[in-house]
Nucleic acid binder design. Structure first.
Length: 211
DNA sequence: ATCCCGAGGG
DNA sequence: CCCTCTGGAT
């Protein structure tokens, strides 16, 4: 795909949604971190339904330690992978309290050292909580980047590197949320809504869509 | 490559 | 029923 086309895609996404952001509910970098960890292979909606039961009263690292593993597990039983997530969240809280005064480190390596936190989660926290122009490639962005031809790649790391290289600097901060929301509501995995898509004339996939 | 794993949609 | 959802660790 040529650079002018890429630029036009982001210009349109920006026009349609000037200030995109996450749909996860959170009130601090810590709560964003926990919400993103819980969101692995789960919908934002289901994460919000669970966190609303304990973020208000136990929305800090020490607060979740006080809540305890058993009660946290009970609160997130409606989310997939809940046993692993509950253990990881509690261990993460222990590390944050012991090593970072309960705060979220503003540092990629420190974030990725937390249990349950990989490259994608670290990128989301760096972007959304700390304003860094990272592009976290999740299931939506991987699909959108490949379908459209915007940044095709065999794995998420390859797609991330291409996006970093191809997305014009002025769009980089918001690129993550534009692409993810586009993937969630328009470029859906099963049945993409190509007729309603604002960039279908720039896309390399529409031709393969069954009429 | 495999495991973890509930809820919603089609 | 099958697929998908802001993945990460082994």
């Amino acid at each position: 795909m040529n650079p002018a086309k890429r630029r036009e895609i982001f210009a349109r996404l920006q026009a349609a949604d000037p200030a995109p952001t996450t749909e996860l509910h959170y009130a601090s970098p810590f709560q964003l971190l926990i919400a993103v960890v819980l969101s692995a292979q789960a919908t934002d909606k289901s994460v919000n339904l669970a966190t609303r039961h304990f973020f208000p009263q136990h929305g800090t690292a020490q607060g979740l330690l006080d809540l305890g593993l058993e009660r946290l597990t009970d609160y997130i039983k409606t989310i997939g992978l809940y046993r692993t997530k509950a253990r990881n969240v509690i261990r993460t809280c222990q590390i944050l309290v012991e090593q970072y005064q309960g705060e979220v480190p503003h540092d990629r390596a420190a974030l990725e050292a937390l249990p349950g936190v990989g490259r994608k989660t670290a990128n989301v926290v760096l972007n959304t909580a700390f304003g860094e122009p990272t592009i976290a490639v999740d299931t939506h962005i991987f699909r959108v980047a490949n379908r459209t031809g915007l940044a095709p790649g065999k794995n998420v790391l390859e797609v991330e590197r291409k996006l970093e290289k191809f997305v014009p600097p002025e769009y980089r901060l918001n690129a993550h949320h534009w692409l993810i929301l586009h993937g969630r509501y328009i470029c859906i995995a099963r049945k993409p809504k190509c007729p309603q898509c604002g960039i279908n004339d720039l896309c390399e996939y529409r031709h393969k869509t069954p009429a």
